[in-house]
Design a binder for these strands. Structure first.
Lengths: 358, 358
DNA sequence: CTTTCAAATGTGCACGCACACAATTAATTT
DNA sequence: AAATTAATTGTGTGCGTGCACATTTGAAAG
């Protein structure tokens, strides 16, 4: 029907010519800003249906010379090495987009204080950002926050923890139940029953931490389905601040039948490792989370056998990129971006440390 | 010294004003095209040293409306599922950059024919591309190819296999020796000696395949260093076309002491798996490479215990991106991009399949 | 002192899009 | 029929950079 130049891309100008209108009209149709007659609308949409128009995103960003402010709500990075990694990802995204008019403001809250989360959330809304990225680790406190964001029409992206009720622009993280299954698979590998496996939730308020319980659920379900031998699974939910903490851990270490430990938190992994080492029980299989400096030490010395990498840095980085793509490039982001459940060992850990952002 | 507007970025125009010259002169200095007086050159460089000018890449690509042709030299994707994955990565990059005037031409060569590689290489140079990405799987044939590229001043990016003599723009791939070590670590996990481990090189001409021997070297070195029990390691280098292939494999399967098999090629992994299954020896630990459809089947049914993911798709994709960044955005690429040695199991394989390009 | 010519410098347009504003047309009122 | 107003459509400018071309400068030659 129409002769098109090969190689060259279709521009708004071309559409205008084909539809017999001006670029302004096409522009109004594309962004449905109204102020267009039915006739012109029909003409343009007709052309649009026949050709495959892909707007030049490069030109678009240059043309609309907008500035965007993004708020990042994360736990205080100075209080926890895991969230320090997250912080790094945010900083990276920040510097990356800075020259294109994107400003990322961090709003840290206290990991151990639910109220602080709520306070920060309303503070963020007050600052009227164009978008929000957040790690909604507190279930109950998050739901009203989402409602607040929605009421103010601010798009938000979740990472780390998914919450069913939230209708975010995107979720970036892992399938936590599946993550538990990976842990289970690694803990029974080459083991011969019967024996005991321990699940440890160290350092967080488990009552409300959906993500930790999800991991445990996956862990248990895989063991029940797949282990031929008889294994006992025990769960400990303890805070290191508790007066009985040392005592409880010591008792666990001395359990004769103990064959493996699965720790659901990254920080807790190193804690469990130190106890195993102290009690000369390095042979007991230990599986935990994330490549933190502390964990690295124990992984290298063989106390920790496997780490499951949650990649907090990349999660945060990608969260912001998603938001920028949405705001600046008007790109449709995929609803969920599930990260691979990376298995880290003594032998492949360096290949992960060496590679940039993966 | 100079008052700068916060938030706003420095433009060429700003530099010109500060240096007391026109934008044209600044442009000439930036791209050192000459035709600039010593005085002006000094003035501009002075300003450049004081401020941190980051060119707006968005505007740059829009302004210089250039077209780039990239040639991709890879083994024929129709002959091997591994290289089919590579092909997918190239196609993805192709569609991604198409609208910005980047054209990627594929030049497939015959995986089993070294001469075809040489022929294709000179054919590529004839086509005068702006850049080349290639998988130099044949050592001896690659070196003269690199010299040819250099002589014609065409930048090239390597992936999959690194070659010391090549001075590429970038190398994208894995540390193969370390990859073998990961294989070894996974094969002894939970095993109790004594016993036999087999290293299988199936399907390629091992004489010249540096990459396979690298893996074996790593495998052996880790076992020698780390296993307390006595293990015997045997190596088989066989082609499935060989008349004695079935016989040799059958004999291996019946080896009583066999505790594990490490296969160095992705295609060979499925072959080994089928033999294990046929002989009812699924309990023998099997470790191989890559998430190919065939391998997936055996991984799911438990015949394959671990796969090490080389991520051919992403390697190819990133190779092209590196080249585009160099050509179009004039960005300095990092010399080497070592991919993590991803460990794939029954439980985490879906998390890898689900995620897009990571 | 004018002419010639090359080196140095400045100016203007294009890239494709967004957006503000100007111009046109049609409908309604006086 | 002229004037007012609203609805629609078209035009122009800017975003920051690259590049072609025009202009200026200064020195050498006539």
């Amino acid at each position: 029907m129409f002769t098109m130049q090969v190689g060259k891309n279709i521009r708004i100008k071309d559409i205008a010519k084909l539809a017999g209108v001006s670029v302004g009209t096409v522009d109004r149709v594309l962004h449905n800003r109204g102020r267009v007659s039915d006739y012109a609308l029909r003409k343009v949409t007709e052309v649009m249906n026949q050709i495959d128009y892909k707007p030049n995103l490069i030109a678009r960003t240059l043309g609309s010379n907008k500035n965007y402010r993004i708020a990042a709500i994360i736990p205080d990075p100075t209080l926890d090495p895991y969230w320090a990694q997250t912080n790094l990802g945010i900083i990276q995204a920040q510097t990356e987009w800075a020259q294109y008019g994107v400003i990322v403001d961090q709003f840290p809250f206290d990991l151990y204080n639910k109220d602080s989360f709520q306070q920060i959330a309303s503070k963020v809304v007050e600052s009227q950002p164009d978008g929000i990225v957040l790690a909604p680790i507190f279930y109950h406190e998050s739901v009203p926050a989402f409602e607040l964001f929605q009421a103010h029409n601010i798009p938000y992206v979740l990472f780390n923890t998914n919450i069913r009720e939230a209708k975010p622009l995107a979720f970036i993280g892992q399938d936590l139940s599946q993550s538990g299954k990976v842990g289970a698979q690694l803990i029974i590998l080459g083991q011969h029953g019967p024996g005991t496996f321990a699940v440890l939730h160290i350092d967080e308020d488990v009552q409300d931490s959906v993500h930790l319980l999800e991991k445990e659920r996956g862990f248990r379900s895989h063991l029940e389905e797949n282990s031929k031998a008889q294994y006992e699974i025990v769960t400990f939910s303890i805070s290191p601040n508790s007066p009985t903490f040392n005592q409880q851990m010591a008792k666990l270490m001395e359990t004769e039948s103990l064959k493996g430990i699965f720790v659901s938190t990254s920080k807790g992994t190193a804690v469990a490792a130190s106890f195993l080492q102290q009690h000369g029980k390095s042979e007991i299989r230990l599986i935990g989370y994330d490549i933190l400096t502390e964990n690295l030490k124990y992984l290298r010395s063989g106390v920790i056998d496997f780490l499951i990498n949650q990649n907090p840095k990349r999660q945060a980085h990608l969260g912001i990129s998603h938001l920028v793509n949405h705001l600046m490039f008007k790109k449709n982001t995929p609803g969920t971006d599930l990260f691979p459940l990376e298995i880290i060992t003594q032998q492949n850990v360096d290949s992960y440390l060496g590679s940039g952002i993966h």
